[in-house]
Design a protein around this nucleic acid. Structure first.
Length: 437
DNA sequence: TCTGGGGTCCTAGGACCC
DNA sequence: TCTGGGGTCCTAGGACCC
């Protein structure tokens, strides 16, 4: 019998170190070497930290009001999240990575898998070349992990970050099974991709305390006691590929848009105003992937953290027919809000989620009586108006054209708090870096 | 004053069918 | 007393990810 050891894959995972913070540092080199955090929307909590900030004991998700004293005592700098900048830097980084191999899967804003199978050169050499080029061309520091499966590439990346001696590149693919297992024995189970804070203690109870333990565990036991998902993880750790490649970004099955408010909101009008903005944004993303939605989830709730009377309301509003038209969605959201809204509460957050998404041109899509068939010329995209609006907004800026329900003659109560935001340096000519005035 | 905003996949259980 | 068995579809909720 053939032992399937010949066609080993070699997969790299490249990711940006403290990505959001690194993006900010590229634009403001004075931040180099300083403890820096990037805050979530509303400047609520830390969602990215530089090593210096981690060294101060700042945890992922730490609320800003609990760590802000470090600004005075230790020179901690905090910036509001600038997603336009991060998205653009991400795009540039992914393009560079894609130059090193024919097959790439962009996994998140700062992470990319790359198929190095058959690419000439040692893992260390390729990894170093990738790091160097990204650092030179766009200024972002990265780490590279390489392994025979995606899960092992993830784990290798983790080691590349943790062990300075590796200089940012860790290649587990060139180790034999025994030596690889020895490396895995040093990785605590909670650091494994796919093992979260629920599963980790349960696994430890069974005596599975490291990545090596899980790699050696009985797959059937893992599947029966836990799930097929964790069983896949275990097999991947053992070197058997169980996760495939998704080179094209999958179309979204749900599109969510929600925000916590800068200030609590009491009135239905203000809530609808906010929901209108969210709906317009979600609808734009829906049209960008050429899909239609069949139902909209609408929710509004008070804060979990304040001592307000708690309330959380939500409803799914089915649409009579699928649509990509913002106006139809706004009608549904208005109905939904009517059902969900209770007076007398301090609303802290609200949002919409487009559900039952399907391709615009799917042949058997439910049509309304008067809608032209998908193939018919005029009906190819039923809402020309929407296309036009999206085009104008793309060209002249995000909110050039908005639904009237998002407009108002008073201050926006619900607007996000973003007191420390840096300019959109790379995506808006008006905000480009000035060297000297 | 003050704690983000997205997503995915899987499973269990109920409704319903023959 | 006894009251099948197998299948599908849908939904809510849980777990995970960044």
């Amino acid at each position: 019998m053939d032992v399937p050891t010949t066609h080993h894959q070699r997969i790299a995972l490249i990711d940006g170190n403290s990505f959001y913070c690194s993006c900010e540092r590229v634009m403001r080199p004075g931040l180099e070497g300083k403890p820096l955090v990037v805050l979530s929307n509303n400047d609520g909590c830390a969602i990215a930290r530089t090593q210096e900030a981690k060294d101060l004991g700042i945890k992922m998700g730490a609320p800003w009001f609990k760590i802000c004293h470090l600004a005075d005592t230790h020179g901690l700098v905090a910036l509001s999240a600038n997603f336009a900048l991060y998205g653009d830097m991400s795009h540039r980084m992914m393009n560079i990575i894609g130059q090193f191999a024919p097959r790439q899967e962009i996994y998140s804003i700062d992470e990319s898998f790359l198929d190095l199978t058959g690419v000439p050169g040692s893992g260390r050499d390729i990894g170093t070349a990738i790091r160097t080029r990204i650092r030179q061309w766009i200024g972002i520091p990265t780490c590279v992990g390489i392994g025979p499966t995606k899960t092992l590439a993830k784990l290798a990346n983790h080691l590349a970050k943790k062990i300075p001696r590796l200089q940012g590149v860790c290649d587990l693919a060139q180790l034999d099974d025994t030596r690889r297992l020895r490396a895995l024995a040093h990785v605590p189970i909670e650091d494994v991709w796919g093992v979260g804070r629920r599963l980790a203690p349960q696994l430890r109870e069974l005596g599975i305390a490291t990545a090596a333990d899980l790699a050696c565990a009985d797959i059937r036991v893992i599947r029966d006691k836990f799930s097929v998902v964790l069983a896949k993880t275990a097999e991947e750790l053992a070197g058997l590929p169980r996760l495939g490649w998704e080179e094209l970004p999958a179309e979204k099955q749900q599109i969510m848009c929600s925000r916590s408010f800068g200030h609590p909101v009491q009135h239905a009008n203000d809530l609808f105003e906010a929901l209108s903005v969210f709906t317009a944004r979600a609808a734009e993303r829906l049209r960008a992937q050429e899909s239609v939605t069949g139902a909209i989830y609408v929710f509004a709730r008070t804060s979990f953290f304040r001592n307000d009377p708690p309330y959380s309301g939500s409803i799914v509003v089915p649409l009579a027919r699928t649509t990509d038209d913002t106006r139809a969605m706004l009608d549904a959201v208005r109905q939904g809000l009517k059902r969900v809204f209770r007076p007398g509460f301090n609303y802290a957050k609200a949002g919409v989620c487009l559900l039952d998404i399907e391709p615009l041109n799917r042949a058997n899509r439910q049509l309304s009586l008067f809608e032209p068939l998908p193939g018919a010329k005029a009906g190819k995209n039923a809402s020309k108006i929407m296309q036009t609006i999206d085009g104008i907004n793309q060209r002249y800026g995000k909110s050039t054209l908005v639904p009237a329900s998002t407009l108002h003659d008073h201050d926006t109560v619900w607007a996000m708090k973003q007191e420390r935001k840096t300019p959109a340096y790379t995506t808006d000519w008006g905000q480009i870096v000035e060297i000297r005035r």
